[in-house]
């Protein structure tokens, strides 16, 4: 009981959160090592299930996976303990950095450095979009959906909420129509 208590959940997930750079996907190898191999809190297969579902439920993937594992071990409070753990290190680090940046933002060198960094960010996000395109945009329907959303959100101030909801509804209708056709032929 003591060993698998809330504190252990919190600390283990704090270690995972504090040592992975780059968000959700980078966290998988760390989770495999800590949660599957050293703690045996979940099997490899369970972890991949959590990951798959964590990707297609709202919110941050790492938080979703932490909630799953914590909940599995210690119920609702365990889910909350694991989630707070995974979030805690980033929270503290970013708070310190945010305070520092607010004090240095007017420095001439910092301004030039940040202008350069923005260019690097543009590169990183372009690469991320290319990666997402390769994984998620399939067939002519996917290309049309991508282009429509891109154009709508560049030219009109539509909240992403409506776009997400519309995509879910259209996806379900499209699925029903296609399935019906496939069954007929």
């Amino acid at each position: 009981m003591k060993k698998d208590g809330y504190l252990d959940l919190f600390l283990t997930f704090a270690r995972i959160g504090g040592l992975t750079f780059g968000g959700g996907y980078a966290m998988l190898p760390m989770l495999q090592k800590e949660v599957v191999e050293s703690k045996a809190w979940a099997s490899e297969e369970e972890l991949l299930d959590y990951y798959a579902v964590g990707q297609c439920t709202p919110g941050i993937i790492a938080v979703n996976v932490a909630t799953f594992i914590g909940n599995k071990l210690k119920g609702t409070l365990g889910g909350i303990a694991a989630t707070l753990g995974v979030v805690a290190p980033s929270f503290v680090i970013i708070l310190v950095l945010a305070a520092a940046i607010h004090n240095f933002a007017d420095n001439e060198y910092v301004r030039h450095a940040l202008a350069g960094i923005r260019v690097a960010v543009a590169v990183l996000v372009v690469n991320a979009v290319i990666g997402l395109w390769k994984k998620g945009v399939k067939g002519i329907a996917g290309v049309i959906a991508f282009s429509a959303v891109f154009l709508i959100s560049v030219f009109f101030a539509v909240s992403p909420i409506w776009i997400v909801l519309a995509a879910i509804v259209i996806g379900i209708i499209y699925g029903q129509v296609f399935k019906a056709r496939e069954e007929k032929s």
């Binding site: 996000v125 945009v137 399939k138 290309v143 959906a145 776009i163 699925g175």
Partner: peptide
């Protein structure tokens, strides 16, 4: 799964417009 068929390209489009 049906919802995700459209959600994936739509989310990619949203991120692409942020990228823009």
């Amino acid at each position: 799964n049906d919802a995700f068929f459209m959600l994936r390209p739509a989310v990619t489009g949203l991120i692409a417009s942020a990228c823009f």
